[in-house]
Structure formats: C-alpha cells, structure tokens
Design a protein around this nucleic acid. Structure first.
Length: 425
DNA sequence: TCTGGGGTCCTAGGACCC
DNA sequence: TCTGGGGTCCTAGGACCC
C-alpha cells in the first residue's frame, strides 16, 4: 500500500470553442453544424467549432479568405457579441469558484485552479466533476489539464482537448516524455512565432526537446522567459497563480473603421468617442490616468494607397479620468500626428500610468472639480441605465460612418430585456 | 472590397549623472 | 581644451498571451 500523496497540482480549465459554444447555447439548431465567430468588424475568424476546424478553416484567418469554404459547406457565421460572451464567462467562473474560491481568471474562457488540497489519487475525479458541473450549470463544454506547473497544465489541456473525456492528468504519471514528444514546440505556452523560428533553427521541434535543453544555453540565446518555460516543463514551478485580481496598468480602446476614413473631422469623432469609452471604463474601476497615447494608421495590407502610422503620448498635468479633459487632450494630440491624403483604417487611444483615484481629490482640487466628477457620475449612471452613449459629447459625432461592421450578429443580449427570446402561445 | 482588440512583460539603447 | 567609464532611469518597440 502506498501512502497518500499531496503534491503541487494546478488545473487549467479552458472552455471549448468558447464564442461558438455561447452562440450554440441559444441556438440549438447549430449544435452539430460547422460554426465560426468573427472578430470586430467581421474581420477575422476568432472561434471555430470542431466541425469548422475539420474543414481546414484556420484560427485568425481573414473572413473573406475563408468565404469559399464557408459558403460551400454552409458554415454558420456570427459577428462577435462580447456582452453575451462576458456574461456567460462570469457564470462559468462563478461555477468554478464553488470548487475553489482562489482561482486565477486568466482570460475570458480559461482559469487556473490550485488542486493541491486533493491527493494524487483523487485529482482526476475532481477534474471530471468540475467539468460535468460546469457543463450542467452553464451549458459550456470545457477541457481540463492537471499538472505540477502552469505550463504543464497547459500542455495537459492541449491533449485533453482531443480526448472525449476532456480531462488529462499528468499527476502521478511516471514519465511524461512520450507525451511531450508529441507536442509541437509552437504549441507550448510562451513560445510564439519568433521563438519557434529560433528553436527550429536549433533543432528543437517538440516540448520534450526543449525540456531537455540546458538552462544556460536557453538563457544565453533567448531570455529569462524562455528558460522559465523549460523549467516549468521539467515540473519546477516558476509561474505562480495570481489569485488576487490586480489593478490594470493601462486601458486601450481602438477599432478598425467600418469603412476607410480620409476626413480629419471624422477621425476626430472616432478618437473622441474612443476616449469617452476609455474614460468611462477607468472611472468604473476608480482609476485615473497620468498619460494618454493616440495612434492612427492606414491599412498595412494596402500599400498601394501609401502607408502611414503614427502615435504620440502626452502626460496630463494631473492624473485624471475626466472625459472632457481626456477628449480635449486627445484631439490636440491627434492634430499633431494627422496627415492629409491618407485612407485611415484604424485609430485608438491608450490611457496609461493608471493609479487608484483618491476619490477625485488632489492638491489642486476645487469646487469646479467636484462639479465635474459629479457630472461624470451622472453621465455614467444614465448610460448604464439607458445604454451606452445615451449621453455623449458633440465631438464624438452623430453620424458615425466609421462605426464597425456587424452583419451577422445573433442579437442575443442576456443583459438587455428587449433581446429576450419571445415565446408565442 | 474585405485582414480584431486588449493586455503584460522584457530588453536594448539613449539620456543623464558623477 | 582635451578626455573615461560606470551606474541608473526611462522609453519605445517587440514578443507573447487570449
């Protein structure tokens, strides 16, 4: 009889084809059919059902390039609906927290969970229970990988995705080398395009080969992140779970336009409108920004019209989250980088150097500031109640020809009363 | 015709100081 | 007027993630 083993165990729970699964939840007719979800502006394919993957449709592929396959195979297409996905994501995470409140929500569709409290023998069953509970309570299918480190749990998850049971456990497995050997180097967490190129050049094609490469070699030839990945593959934990939600350090709002913009005035409207969005976001998290970056660019794919891309960062005299001031600063910044005669494709603003607002007060606070923060609060409340941009600034425009394309929206909004499905009697 | 958006972290190199 | 090198801090850009 062996004694009960309690080693470090990390689970990675990852929703399968998350956006597609969300759309399927409200549309049972597309359950067994090939389905894809498009990025903003209906630009790229960002989520694919297994049936769509089997047709050879690639992740991140531009929609227009895959259109032939899509039409020929009657693939169901959806514009992305982020308020729906966000809502369902919160339901999944809430369900996971029933098993362990200290999870790290890593992205909209995945979370790390510490399972060290369970014995080595129990952990596979726990994984299966998590999976079936999430499926039953939210309708979202998941895959779960369990291992000693985050990187290994990612690998295990990768394998679990291809299994019917949906759970892969490395804990207690004597030798995982034969499994690692089957994992391409570019499927390892932390190895992107550039590193893949570099590793290939040096004869490293799979996870096992990276695991067995010496640390000094990796550190000398890439950087600390590379060697950390290798250590984690060896089962030595270098990346901790981040259980507390840390405050973000920057806030980006940027969009590609529905159609190309040439007029300065329209660019101004777009930038102003992104500023309103961004400042509302940071206000809702009680943050203030010390600096702002404005950037504009033409399409990098249409050089025949000439390419222009520029950005500029400026500091506010005093950190702020005041929409009016942020818009004003952004527009003067835009003026300094705008060049006539280009077909602009995208613009954005980045609020950075964020910190917690001390209730809007500073050394120079005045009665005027009080009034402004009061005004911001009422704008936020109104927009929350009656929909975003019920109240806006004139500079953000009314026509908005530059707004995104969303031709295939499912129009499901779990947070909007008017979008509830109707049942006819 | 049509190619996403929002983050974090690391590093090289410049500016500045002594 | 000539000239050195080392340390720190900041920033832009790149790589990575989903």
């Amino acid at each position: 009889m062996s004694s009960i083993q309690y080693t470090k165990k990390i689970a990675l729970i990852d929703c399968n084809s998350f956006y597609v699964s969300c759309e399927r939840l409200f549309n049972p007719k597309i359950r067994k059919k090939p389905v894809v979800v498009l990025s903003n502006n209906d630009g790229c394919i960002v989520s694919r059902s297994n049936e769509a993957k089997a047709l050879g449709i690639k992740m991140g592929e531009p929609y227009f390039k895959a259109k032939d396959i899509i039409i020929k195979n009657n693939v169901q297409v959806f514009s992305s609906n982020y308020s729906l996905y966000g809502d369902l994501s919160r339901r999944v995470m809430r369900t996971l927290k029933r098993f362990n409140a200290d999870i790290e929500v890593y992205s909209i569709d995945e979370a790390f969970m510490d399972l060290s409290n369970f014995s080595d023998d129990e952990v596979l069953n726990v994984g299966q229970e998590i999976r079936s509970t999430v499926l039953q309570w939210t309708g979202i299918p998941t895959s779960i990988g369990i291992a000693k480190t985050k990187t290994l749990s990612k690998v295990a998850n990768h394998i679990a995705k291809k299994k019917k049971s949906g759970v892969t456990n490395f804990i207690g497995v004597e030798n995982i080398d034969p499994l690692l050997e089957k994992v391409d180097i570019n499927d390892v967490w932390g190895v992107g395009r550039q590193l893949t190129k570099f590793y290939h050049k040096n004869g490293i094609y799979n996870a096992k080969q990276l695991k067995n490469k010496s640390n000094t070699w990796i550190k000398k030839n890439s950087n600390v992140l590379g060697s950390r990945t290798a250590m984690e593959l060896r089962g030595i934990s270098c990346i901790d779970l981040e259980k507390t939600e840390s405050k973000r350090k920057s806030c980006v709002v940027s969009r590609s336009f529905g159609q190309r913009i040439e007029k300065y005035q329209e660019l101004r409207e777009a930038v102003a409108s992104y500023c309103l969005n961004a400042s509302e976001k940071i206000r809702s998290e009680s943050l203030i920004a010390k600096s702002i970056t404005v950037f504009i660019r033409t399409s990098p794919f249409q050089s025949r019209f000439g390419y222009y891309s520029n950005s500029k960062t400026v500091d506010f005299p005093i950190a702020t989250n005041n929409s009016i001031e942020i818009v004003k600063t952004a527009l003067t910044t835009l003026e300094s980088i705008f060049k006539n005669g280009y077909r602009y494709q995208k613009a954005g603003v980045i609020l950075s150097n964020l910190s917690e607002s001390a209730n809007g007060k500073n050394l120079f606070s005045s009665e005027k500031d009080e009034k402004i923060s009061c005004l911001m609060r009422s704008i936020d409340n109104t927009n929350y109640r009656y929909g975003r941009s019920s109240i806006s600034l004139a500079s953000a425009g009314v026509q908005k020809r530059w707004n995104m394309k969303r031709e295939y929206s499912s129009k499901i909004d779990t947070s909007d009363f008017y979008c509830l499905p109707k049942i006819m009697t």
